[in-house]
């Protein structure tokens, strides 16, 4: 038996189908028909897949069709460095969401662009300010002024009653 990190992901898939099938138990037939028609066979397949993975069944790497027809992460970067950089960019992504939630789009978008360019990318002041201005103009001109998208105020302002 070979324990690999992706087994956790496989386990999550089983739990996903299990929860979706279990939730439907008390529903009327009309509501339950589709989730069970799809979910039960998929639950069985996910268990079969997990067993295969546990047994370590893998295709010979010489076969060209081994990778899925989908985007593949670039190889060649040191795995530890790649992991650190991935965590770093995810922190920025989650930070952007937190900023939008707390301060709203209008403040967060230019602030984020400037901070990313200056702090993360280490760009010069002039370029950082120029691109921040461009981002703000694009945001305000297209999405606010022209399309009138209803951007919500930041939660922080709601809490502070501003």
């Amino acid at each position: 038996m070979k324990l690999r990190p992706q087994l956790l992901f496989d386990l999550l898939i089983i739990i996903f189908f299990l929860v979706f099938v279990y939730e439907a138990i008390d529903w009327r037939l009309q509501a339950r028909l589709y989730p069970w028609a799809v979910g039960i066979p998929m639950l069985a397949l996910s268990v079969v897949h997990m067993i295969w993975e546990l047994k370590g069944k893998k295709k010979p790497s010489s076969q060209p069709s081994a990778a899925p027809v989908d985007f593949q992460f670039t190889r060649g970067t040191d795995p530890a460095l790649a992991r650190r950089r991935a965590i770093n960019i995810f922190s920025w992504i989650f930070g952007l969401f937190a900023g939008i939630w707390l301060l709203g789009f209008k403040i967060t978008i230019p602030a984020f662009v400037f901070l990313y360019l200056k702090v993360q990318s280490g760009e010069r002041w002039g370029l950082s300010l120029l691109l921040t201005g461009a981002a703000w103009f694009l945001f305000w001109g297209l999405f606010d002024w022209l399309l009138h998208l209803p951007f919500p105020e930041g939660q922080l302002f709601v809490w502070l009653g501003l």
Partner: peptide
Amino acid sequence: GASLLKGLLAGGV
């Protein structure tokens, strides 16, 4: 690719 089951399960999800 390597695992047909992964494709079918992703579709199932």
